[in-house]
Write a protein that binds this DNA or RNA. Structure first.
Lengths: 209, 209
DNA sequence: TTCACAATCCCCCAAATGAGGTATGGCAAG
DNA sequence: CTTGCCATACCTCATTTGGGGGATTGTGAA
């Protein structure tokens, strides 16, 4: 498939927008016929255009680029979005990916790398700046924060999270329900909570399961 | 920093191991002085070696490469691990990343790309095959599964998850606690649960918050 | 050898919870 | 215009839960 990749740009800075468009449109195999200077116009126009790849800025006048993707992506599941931005804080990166972006590049990405990334995303890849990739990978790491709970308590918390009551837990691990109560009281103390709901939430958040 | 990158290989296939070692050790800027044919010997030896990057196979005789990383990585936070494997199922990929791998490459990766990836990971990047990168990125996508809950119910579920009781919720959103009870009963019905704990768990799992 | 803590068991009691109802008004789809 | 859903509010009752104790055994660290 040696077709031309149709690229659109959403970017409010006139200079950057035009420069990008020129680079892309001027390269064989790439075409950039549509540029937008805000999220709203992109949301209106994109669904009726056959665009393969969209370069999206995050900082846009009214609605930001992440919100824009949230709106557009569901209607265009086959269009790939690459964030092209100066923001590299965790929130921007992860929110973008959650919204449906398939790539995340810095604005200072050199043209050759940019074109290569457009190609890559169109082939099913996920181009990212190196430090962004590391951020993403790191996000999978389990903190392994020392659990304050004893093995027994952890086991009981596990069952607690499954919605079992004292008696069911007691029957499951062959203990008196009195013992279960005591354990759970201790769990609450250690987790600084005072209800099952809060304990379950904390357990899942802190991944002590 | 033009230092030589110290690379170690953990790979049970003799042919592959030696070929990789030759390629790496034969390239200026890279050195491969240590190779291991199973997880156990790598776990024993690596902590006392000053290795920058470890190429790790997943399929190893007794203990697999993922378990190996889980054991070693905590002791060597500054050593980067790249999975080099034929397995590209989701579980292998995500378990590897959770265990602490910083890169994930296919075994058929060409030598030039492999060397480049070693360099990249050592510089703080996260080299991945394109389809692996896409898998990782996709994992962030929110399924946006249609919640069976009404807006009001969602709101109350939210507060439920914070560990509030009927009365507190009622006070917070200016409703009768009777109404809260009714809403929660309906939430339970819709989520097919019958306790706060189970509701909280389901809410978080299904991301309806 | 204390001392702390995990793990087990027990008691009481007030409050919260879950399950079963009933009822109203509004609003949207059919 | 009826049917269903949402949001609201109330009642009763049996059960569960959380908070407050107290107690024993064993283990391991100080």
């Amino acid at each position: 498939m040696e077709e031309t990749i149709q690229v659109a740009i959403v970017e409010d800075d006139r200079e950057i927008r035009q420069t990008l468009a020129l680079i892309i449109d001027g390269t064989p195999g790439y075409q950039c016929e549509h540029t937008f200077l805000d999220a709203e116009s992109a949301i209106d126009a994109l669904p009726s255009l056959a665009v393969d790849v969209v370069l999206m800025d995050i900082e846009l006048p009214r609605m930001n680029g992440i919100e824009a993707i949230k709106k557009i992506k569901p209607q265009l599941p086959d269009t790939d979005f690459i964030m092209l931005t100066v923001k590299e804080d965790d929130a921007s990166v992860f929110d973008s990916l959650c919204a449906g972006a398939s790539g995340y590049l810095m604005k200072y990405t050199p043209p050759s790398k940019l074109l290569q990334s457009i190609d890559e995303v169109h082939k099913g890849g996920a181009p990212m700046s190196t430090n962004i990739a590391r951020k993403v990978i790191h996000s999978f790491r389990q903190p392994i924060l020392a659990s304050p709970l004893s093995p027994r308590e952890t086991e009981i918390l596990q069952l607690l999270c499954d919605g079992l009551n004292y008696r069911s837990i007691a029957e499951k691990i062959f203990l008196s329900s009195h013992t279960i109560r005591t354990h759970i009281k201790n769990i609450y103390k250690k987790l600084h909570v005072n209800s099952r709901a809060a304990a379950v939430k904390k357990a899942i958040e802190d991944k002590l399961l």
